[in-house]
Structures are given as structure tokens and as C-alpha cells.
Simulated assay, not measured.
Amino acid sequence: MKVFRAGMALAGLMLAGCQQAPAQAAGGTIEAVNHTRWAINHFSVNGQSGIDIIGPHQGGGGGCCFRAPAQWQPGMTVKIDWETGIGDTDEFPGYGNREAYLAWERKIDSSRKKHSAIVLVPDYTGQKTCGITVHFLPCDKVKVTTSCHIYSDPQYPVKEPLRMPEPQVCPK
């Protein structure tokens, strides 16, 4: 009987702890759409990896997991960290000429740039949420959405085209 009571007390404490945790909306994967001519070598949302390399003008990701709070609050943000680099390997010289390969490798390495942005999460009140999709835009701009619609769906909230023109000089 003592074991039963102790077990019930422990279960009650565990249940109380779960009830005190903040309510979470439905979760899902961390995806991305790259609207730029640069490759996204890697990216993360609040420190959680988005997994895949995403080529220029492509989608990808698949990291696990992002859960939006059940209630959207004004001013909600996420931190996006990412690294860009050359997305085109047409100039790859092969491994036969070591000097040409090393020069190509230096060019690839010198093109890598680290970025970070704090991004507002759009209002999802009254909508189902499905993970998060990060949109990498020209001039190192970023948008996010928790929409369950896919990018090609007319109801998808981000309307920027996949191939966006990039200005010669980005506004400050």
C-alpha cells in the first residue's frame, strides 16, 4: 500500500510539472527556402539545426524540431544563424592538379560568411502551426512563417519569388 501511495504521489508531482510547462502548439521540422544566388551551408533556428545545405534558389532543411508557443504574443522572435557561400561548383577543377584544386578551395573558403538575425514571428493566432520555414532573401534579410501550407500554395503567407533580383548595393 505504501508503494502504491508513493507511486501516486510521484505521478501527481509529474502531472503538476507538466501542467506548469508552457503550452505548446503543434510542432514540426525546420525548413528553409533560399531566394538568393548563394548557398546556405548551414542554418539554425534558436540554436536548433536546419540540417541540409540549401543551394541557390532551392528549398530544403528538415531539422527537428520547432514548436511555437500555443499563444502568439506580439514581439515574438526567433534567432536565425546561417552561413552563406558559393553555391555553384561549375569551376571545380578536380583533384588532378593540386595547385588548381587548392586555389579553388581557397576561393570557396573565402566566400563563406556567417550571419545572424533576430526575426519577428508573424501572428499565427487562430491558425494551425507546423514547425517553421525560414526564407533567406537578398541582402541578408530573413522572413519566417509557421504556416502549414507549402511555398507553392496560394494561401502560403510569404509571396516573394524564388529567384529574387539582388541589388548591386544593399540598403543599410
Rank of each mutant, 00 (worst) to 15 (best):
P74G: 02
G59Y: 13
G61N: 05
I86C: 04
T77M: 01
Y95D: 09
A68M: 07
Q48Y: 09
V78M: 10
M76P: 03
V45F: 13
T77W: 06
E83R: 03
I86V: 08
P93S: 03
D88A: 01
G87M: 12
Q58L: 15
Q58A: 15
G55Q: 10
G87H: 11
A68V: 05
D52L: 01
G55M: 12
G50E: 07
T77K: 02
V45P: 10
E83N: 01
Q48K: 10
T89I: 13
W72Y: 10
W82E: 04
G63W: 13
N46K: 03
R67W: 09
R67E: 12
I53F: 15
G87I: 06
D81Q: 02
M76H: 08
A68W: 08
T84D: 10
I53V: 15
R67S: 09
R67M: 07
E91H: 06
D81Y: 01
I53Q: 15
W82A: 02
G63N: 04
G85K: 02
G61T: 05
Y95H: 12
G85W: 03
H57A: 09
P56H: 09
G61A: 07
F66D: 02
S49Y: 07
Q71T: 15
Q58M: 15
Q73H: 08
I54P: 02
H57Q: 12
W72A: 00
G50Y: 12
I80H: 10
T89P: 10
I54Y: 03
G85H: 00
G75W: 14
S49C: 00
C65F: 14
S44I: 01
G59F: 11
I53L: 15
D52Q: 05
E91C: 02
I86D: 09
C65M: 11
P69F: 04
G47Q: 09
V78D: 07
F92N: 08
M76R: 08
I80V: 15
V78G: 04
P69A: 04
F66A: 03
E91T: 02
P74Y: 14
D88T: 02
M76C: 08
C65K: 12
C64I: 13
Q71G: 04
K79D: 08
Q73T: 09
D81W: 01
I80W: 14
D52N: 05
C65H: 13
Q73Y: 04
G85T: 05
Q58H: 15
S49L: 00
R67D: 10
G61W: 14
Y95S: 09
A68R: 03
P93W: 10
C64H: 15
I54W: 07
D81R: 01
Y95L: 13
G63E: 07
K79I: 05
T89H: 14
G94M: 07
D52A: 00
T77L: 03
T84Q: 05
M76S: 13
M76W: 10
D90W: 15
Q71D: 15
R67A: 11
P93Q: 07
D81G: 01
W72S: 00
T84M: 07
G62I: 07
S44Y: 04
G75Q: 08
G55D: 06
F92D: 10
S44D: 13
C65R: 11
C64T: 14
G61Q: 06
D88P: 00
G55V: 07
Q58T: 14
D52M: 01
I86A: 04
F92I: 02
V45K: 07
